[in-house]
Design a protein around this nucleic acid. Structure first.
Lengths: 204, 204, 204, 204
DNA sequence: GAATAAACGAGACGGTACGTCGCGTCTTAAG
DNA sequence: CTTAAGACGCGACGTACCGTCTCGTTTATTC
């Protein structure tokens, strides 16, 4: 019926070799002195094979660096703060890969000029993270830990922002304690303080 | 005594004209389609004069983008939360310049490869902001709003991180309300929760 | 057997278009205000394609200026003096091209520093001209016009020297009469003088 | 009367040091990789002092290379051929200086673009050499060796041409024998052959 | 002797061309 | 129809040199 299409099929090994070479080179030389020809040579591949798969250098880097960000479902710890803590840890693990440490800054740079890339990021990474935050909040609301209307986008910024700043801008060491503190900060921000709850429980 | 130095001195007007041209061009065409020749032409200057001052295109851009970050003293509003709000606004004003919106992502990218640049950023921008945060906290402590030991670096991350993420990564609109919310979040994180205050009012 | 060589082959049209553009530009603007970018633009070619063929601007110019010096066999007029006249005319035609008038002085300059270039000139142009002179002399000898041992290199200098001096050093107009006179001078120099012939007519 | 003019007078040492540096550098690196800044450094002099004396790099080189070409009167040997031989030797001595071997090719190159330079050369070097040739011919005519009307310009080309070609184009060794042969060739060309004189003494 | 005026070393300046490098496309022959 | 190899057009890069200009200093003549 449908002939699997004529001609030589694409080589699956290339689909793996190229992103691997990209990550290796990113870790070695960074994004600045990073060349498509180098990637081709390293992967033992022609440039045409690369450009048949990726529309541009930026796309190639982006697709190669964040190749398996399907983080799976958010672990349910039973309490809001530790759920947040788990999510933050998950995000951190994605960002602190050797390849990601150089690819994400490059991605940030590329985003300023490339609207398509920006849209794609919004639709995939951002959407998925917002969904995760929303899920956590809904679970907390179901448990009565949280009011029904929380600003999910704000929460997302409070979670990712400090991580991005620490990792990619100020290049500070990011330890467990910092993740705890960020989680606690978000928790405090999302939950009405005891004081408010005690003082005016009916105002809401 | 010691002759100031032989030869024709550097032209002061160029020292101003080049960064101005850089900022204008960054705002107009972005970092991607940004040319040293364009800068030279715009500034009415030869390329040699530029490369005599900056080692590379990147250095020129970064040195030009953050030209007057000496934001002066932090306004004292009398209350911690509004002090934080003012500081956040200050930081935001620096970052939301047309030139900065395109230069800072490029700077972030460059930081991953250039240790010197990283040090320079740490010693200037980061140090100055940490000092600002510290000053605000000390004033709050003097007023009795704050415990004596607060994590200034954490506070700094909580302030700048969400701004950076919103402006440069997710390209979200940053309005007054968001600045309010960030300030509130930092305030909540720094101050002991009501609950704790209620539980141990005499510890002060 | 041996694969002709991998990859895209050099474009033959460029091999012709570039020298043509060089000659056109040399004739138009001279060697002084002559730009590689202009050549590239005129030939509809990238600079890389040029530098893939020629190691430098100078190489490109010289290789382009003397593109078809294979002047074919020397015309046989049946008499030594008119043979010489024909050869001188041939040499003059090569040197008085618009392109050659500006390229050859530059070539002369380059020869002082570049041994390789010098060798190449010796092996091609000089060798070919010496062969021509030798052929003419041998024909004359066969006809009995000439003694058997003539100094071919001297003859060559006497032919080309005045042309070079007139065209490239003193920039004098070179008309038919001058060519006649040079030919006559060489003829006189090569042939035994009448005096000698009168004195010893039987030596032949 | 004429005040020797106010202000600091020009430094005589510079007038000597610069041409000396030019000749040294020409001999060392040739004209191609020859820099005005190098000359200034070598002579221990500022560039302004150079450009106050010479209008351009080409002028400087030209004036420095042929600085003492006042060859004095032509020796009178009593016979035309040896007079020619002496003149050729004089010309050769000028051209075969280490500095001249690189400066003259550069001068030849410069002549194609610079009309002023060409005029200057014509008015000085060429005029002086033509005068020399003319003087020799007149002496020969007075002695009865020569007819009254000889083509002085042709003679000049026949003298200088082969020298220029040998020295600057083909870079052949120029020995005493070659000078002899050139002199003989010119002699033959200038003097009517015995045959002609014998055959038709009255045709002239 | 002070003022003037030109020349000096040093080196920055505008301009222009150089030769290199990278991107993304195209063109071969081979599979 | 894909592949490896590599040439292609384009365009920016950073360097080099020219000839000019500005400094502060030095050296002579003129008031």
């Amino acid at each position: 019926m449908n002939s699997p299409q004529p001609g030589r099929p694409r080589d699956d090994r290339i689909d793996h070799a190229v992103p691997a070479a990209v990550r290796a080179l990113l870790a070695e030389v960074g994004y600045g002195r990073f060349t498509v020809d180098q990637v081709a040579a390293r992967a033992g591949v022609g440039k045409a094979a690369i450009y048949r798969r990726f529309g541009s250098k930026a796309e190639m880097v982006f697709a190669s660096a964040v190749h398996d960000v399907d983080t799976g479902p958010v672990t349910d710890t039973g309490r809001l703060e530790s759920d947040l803590r788990a999510l933050i840890c998950q995000v951190h693990d994605i960002m602190d890969t050797p390849a990601a440490r150089v690819a994400l800054p490059a991605l940030i740079e590329a985003l300023t000029a490339d609207d398509t890339l920006r849209e794609r990021l919004t639709d995939t990474f951002l959407a998925s993270e917002l969904a995760d935050v929303r899920e956590i909040c809904e679970r907390a609301h179901a448990r009565g830990e949280l009011a029904d209307h929380v600003d999910v986008e704000l929460a997302h910024l409070l979670i990712t922002g400090p991580l991005i700043a620490a990792l990619f801008v100020f290049h500070l060491p990011v330890g467990e304690q910092l993740l705890d503190e960020i989680a606690h900060s978000v928790y405090l921000t999302l939950t009405p303080t005891s004081c408010e709850r005690l003082a005016s429980p009916e105002t809401r």
